[in-house]
Design a binder for these strands. Structure first.
Lengths: 311, 311
DNA sequence: GCCCGGACACAACCGGTGGTTGTGTCCGTA
DNA sequence: TACGGACACAACCACCGGTTGTGTCCGGGC
């Protein structure tokens, strides 16, 4: 299906004749006739009934009309998503299915009129470079890189502290526990195949391991969170960390157990990063929305590395 | 923008390399390279970074990706809307902004998964022919044609009785009335430029005029309901009939007055028509929805022509 | 009643887009 | 260092999509 033909169809349907549509498109009437004929051939139905006074839509043409409009709108939105200047607000998240994308969904619900694009960059360093170059407008990054503070032109604010829970299968030794302490996890195998070395969140888990003598394995290929959950559910010796975002685990799937971690609770500190000079109007709306909805978690009894973005 | 190029972009993004996308599309790698290059040229941005091991998405490419998916979905839906067999449920309504399209909106809210197409045919005769040919699946037609009963293979059920109100501007003689009788309208000019001669609803108004000695003018070009309301609001000597559908009149616009008509109340009887042999699964859902939501209006004190579809 | 004008379709022609084959370049790996 | 895999560039060619010219149909005006 050719978008030019669809656009021609729309103009012809609105004008009621090919001649006028041809004039608007700056082509000849014959070209419009051929485009419509080609579209009708690919669709396999007649879209117009030809009359000596012009054309009018068939029933199929009437049914096709709103879909044609929507198709062209989609094409416009797609083109606008990469147009420099006045493109949709572009936000980097750490994970397409984690707590931060939940924040983005909430923002979208609150402001349905604001066009959003969500991307996933490699790490905070890439994100900061993209913020400074203007390729993205905001970034949900949990932490700054260890020992490397944010540059002065990048602003940041903590928006969400995400406590980590332990996730085990029903046959795991800790499956029946109401809660577990961080020290009590020493000796247990914790499997997190999604960790990418070199990222700031790998550094987070490195610090966590060093501080409490845990055993976190990041070996093996990452087949996605579904496969991870399946494996954890079926393997008694394996457990994994997972944020407390409610949508992440399918309801009652596979008999998975979610066990809070205490003394202290490891907390993943999400922050919003943006460039101070970024003039995108939707950025202000996003900051305002997050400031209004961010729940002030209590820092007592929690653990984060000491190099994260401060509250 | 070329849909083939967008499809190629999607495959290449998912595969991570042009080679594999080319194999899936049964073209050469060079063709894929050229398609992507052309798409990047029309969009004005780079979508992929080329590496010796394949390609990976740029930030712009990541932002474009979901829009590309949506664009192709829209193209699929557009094509499906005219595919014979297993196309969306196609329903004819009498007016795109009247009570029946409100019923369709309610059905869509109740069954968001059912694809719908709404068309507007000339009159009940056209609708019956389209039902019998399978071009449409259901029709909201207020009434049968006078003196011409529905054929045996067309089923019908009354779903909504729409009382007509009088609509006047603030300077009209009846503007202050709490209600008005049908007989009391004799001598007043009632203007309904939308009436198309030869349709069954024109016959409805003909009967109404004959039964109560009204003066209904259908002269002048119909510039749409907005223009109609503007004229009625500004012209003291003009009034018009309008269904009581709440969305039809803009809230408090132009100081329009809506006056109930009584003794009797003229009622426009909407019915659903369908072909008895139509196997479309969504048709049963529509009938069930209408049966469940149709409010049983009281027939006492109302008027309809005697040739309408019976309750 | 006839002719004219407006509108769409068909035919012939032609240029440019979009495919192929062939080749070059880059880079990771053996 | 040589090889292999992957993408880009160049040359070539077919076909798609445009234009001009013409035919047909039908309604309205003289």
């Amino acid at each position: 299906m050719d978008l030019d033909a669809v656009r021609t169809f729309l103009l012809a349907a609105e004008a009621g004749q090919f001649q006028e549509a041809a004039a608007e498109l700056a082509v000849t009437q014959q070209a419009v006739s051929k485009r419509i004929a080609a579209l009708e051939r690919t669709l396999g139905v007649r879209l117009f009934t030809r009359t000596p006074r012009g054309v009018e839509l068939t029933i199929d043409g009437q049914a096709f009309l709103p879909h044609a409009r929507e198709l062209l709108r989609a094409a416009d939105r797609a083109a606008a998503s990469v147009r420099p200047g006045r493109r949709p607000l572009r936000v980097d998240v750490i994970n397409l299915r984690g707590a931060t994308s939940g924040l983005m969904r909430g923002f979208h619900r609150a402001h349905p009129g604001i066009d959003l694009d969500v991307v996933k960059l490699f790490d905070v360093g890439t994100a900061v470079a993209a913020l400074r170059s203007g390729e993205i407008d905001a970034s949900f990054r949990a932490v700054a890189a260890p020992g490397r503070p944010l540059p002065d032109d990048i602003a940041s604010v903590r928006v969400l502290d995400e406590p980590l829970h332990l996730l085990t299968g029903p046959a795991h030794a800790l499956a029946g526990a109401r809660s577990v302490t961080l020290a009590g996890l020493a000796g247990h195998r914790i499997w997190m195949p999604g960790i990418v070395p070199g990222t700031e969140w790998a550094a987070y888990y490195d610090d966590l391991v060093a501080a409490f003598g845990l055993t976190i394995e990041a070996t093996g290929p990452n087949f996605g969170s579904d496969a991870l959950l399946d494996t954890v559910a079926d393997t008694p010796a394996l457990a994994t960390f997972m944020g407390d975002h409610p949508r992440l685990v399918r309801p009652a799937g596979h008999g998975l157990r979610r066990i809070p971690v205490t003394d202290p609770t490891p907390v993943y500190p999400h922050a919003l990063l943006w460039h101070r000079d970024n003039p995108h109007p939707a950025l202000a709306a996003l900051r305002a929305h997050l400031a209004a909805t961010a729940a002030g978690h209590d820092a007592a009894g929690t653990w984060t590395p000491d190099w994260v973005i401060p509250r």
